[in-house]
Nucleic acid binder design. Structure first.
Lengths: 314, 314
DNA sequence: GCCCGGTCTGCTCATATGAGCAGCACTGCC
DNA sequence: GGCAGTGCTGCTCATATGAGCAGACCGGGC
């Protein structure tokens, strides 16, 4: 395409997209046949001169979703658009909303849904609508009685999802991480706890997020880990955690001793699930999102455009 | 439009614009008739959910051009797009390119073109192509022998435009502003100078820019004014200059004594021209662009999107 | 219960667009 | 100069889309 045609294709695009003229009218204005105009427009599109964006908080990026399915082997992917996003919080919210939409549209409706907890899951629970499902029983899949701030958000998340879905919640009455292995083993052998974990294992689907391995982690905020603990984990290669278990970029447990003191489903149990929905968004979580997808911890990923592109290209 | 329809229109837009599905196919996917899909897409457009941008350095904004013509009474307006602009310099370049394009396409081809000088005009001269016209004589319309830095750019501008247009340039051999009124009068009565000004008055068209009233002005750079002089002018209400003459926001001369010492066409002579092309771009020039258009110093304006929107809404 | 105005739906028909193809001009090679 | 190969042009025809309209539907007033 020479320079003259390039310029003509721009003039044609202006008249077509900004002035809503027909290709025939454009042909008359630029002294071209309408077929030439059609070809110029096709070339302008093909060469990327035309950008079409959907500006809406609920907008998704279907081509990126397809690439994620095809290139990363996911069963499904939901990618929310960045168009018009003002702040990281807004992106987080859009992603939570998309996850809620996905759950609502999920067929068949899961009878038992295993959930983790954290900021993302809490936000999803808030975006779900009353009646999003009928009779969904929700079960916690990892320990989560917070030690200090925000008491009860873990419980509120599970209960909220269950109530709005017309079912009930089964909480896992245990800390996330225990200081002694013996205590952890004792708790897991408790009849109630063991029963909950057994129920969790039988879930039809899992919904969980992933945390970045940094000082803002909910485990630090909840008092299960110190910032120094996190630093050590990072040094061992940790990129983040899933259901409280810290993994490296290949999805391997970085600290087996710590992992043994962590209550809840194991990562291999999660991997074995027929439907595992991971919801991961934000720049800080690019590395852990990659680890989750790479090690097949989820079959469905709900994420944002930048994270998705990171998984695909870089 | 209720929330359900809004969401449907976004889903439809994704399938239509990102996946290139037909409205009929979308109808099948979303369990709607194709007419409903068409209406949802129309509503998405109308409500501004769909943004179409033309990403190209030569892209123009025709709807804004029309508004400028209609709402500000211009004979013509050229507005270059901001889409994809990285730096103010790039915008300046796009505008100069657009001005060069406009000149090249101008019919009838002017036989005599009066030009001012400055950074913008120099850039336009560089973007013109050899043979952009055949036999255009170029004449300087205001004094412009620079005192210090960049000697000869004023002359190079006029000569460049003329040569590429297959004609010759007539330079105005005089400083822009003189220190004494008597000297200015003496220079203007010089036979050569008077002849050039007479020729300038007879131009078929004028091409000029406008300067902001700030310390970066070419008049400061060229040594005709000190930064203190500019401060005083600003205090008197100056928003910028056209052909070396400082005006307020209504286009009135702010300092008649200074104006009397300025060599070249007067603003009223410029206003009387049948075709006056002003090329003004950049945030710093919003105020002076408004003054130029408001006081009808030009009949054609070449500018950038942000400046144009400032003229219309701001 | 019944009527009325407004809105929405799914149609017909006209128009705009894209796919595909035959002919033509141009280029490079002999 | 002749000729095959390549790419562009302007057509035909099929398809996609938009305008306009008759009837269905809904909510409110009597």
């Amino acid at each position: 395409m020479d320079e003259v045609d390039e310029l003509l294709s721009i003039r044609a695009a202006e008249l077509y997209y900004e002035e809503n003229k027909t290709q025939d009218e454009i042909g008359q204005a630029l002294r071209l046949t309408r077929w030439k105009v059609g070809r110029l427009l096709a070339q302008a599109k093909q060469r990327g001169f035309i950008r079409i964006e959907i500006l809406h908080p609920r907008a998704r990026r279907l081509p990126i979703e397809r690439r994620l399915r095809e290139e990363r082997g996911l069963d499904d992917a939901i990618v929310v658009s960045h168009a018009g996003v003002q702040s990281p919080e807004e992106l987080q919210e859009r992603t939570a909303q998309a996850a809620a939409d996905y759950l609502t549209a999920l067929r068949p409706v899961p009878r038992t849904l295993g959930v983790s907890w954290g900021r993302t899951l809490f936000e999803i629970s808030q975006h779900l609508r009353n009646g999003w499902a009928t009779g969904v029983n929700v079960v916690q899949i990892n320990g989560g009685v917070s030690l200090n701030r925000r008491p009860g958000t873990a419980a509120a998340t599970a209960v909220g999802i269950a109530q709005k879905g017309g079912g009930s919640a089964t909480l896992l009455p245990s800390p996330a991480i225990l200081e002694q292995l013996a205590t952890k083993e004792a708790i897991e052998s408790d009849r109630v706890v063991a029963g909950v974990i057994e129920l969790a294992r039988s879930s039809d689907a899992y919904l969980f997020s992933a945390g970045a391995a940094d000082h803002n982690s909910v485990h630090v905020e909840s008092g299960y880990l110190s910032t120094a603990d996190v630093d050590v984990l990072v040094q061992k290669g940790a990129v983040g955690d899933v259901v409280g278990r810290y993994i490296d970029s290949d999805g391997n447990i970085v600290d087996p001793a710590l992992d043994a003191r962590t209550v809840g489903l194991t990562l291999d149990e999660l991997r074995a699930a027929p439907l595992g929905i991971a919801v991961v968004a934000g720049t800080a979580k690019h590395a852990v999102a990659d680890a989750v997808v790479r090690s097949r911890l989820c079959s469905v990923l709900v994420t944002d455009e930048a994270t998705a592109l990171h998984l695909l290209d870089g």
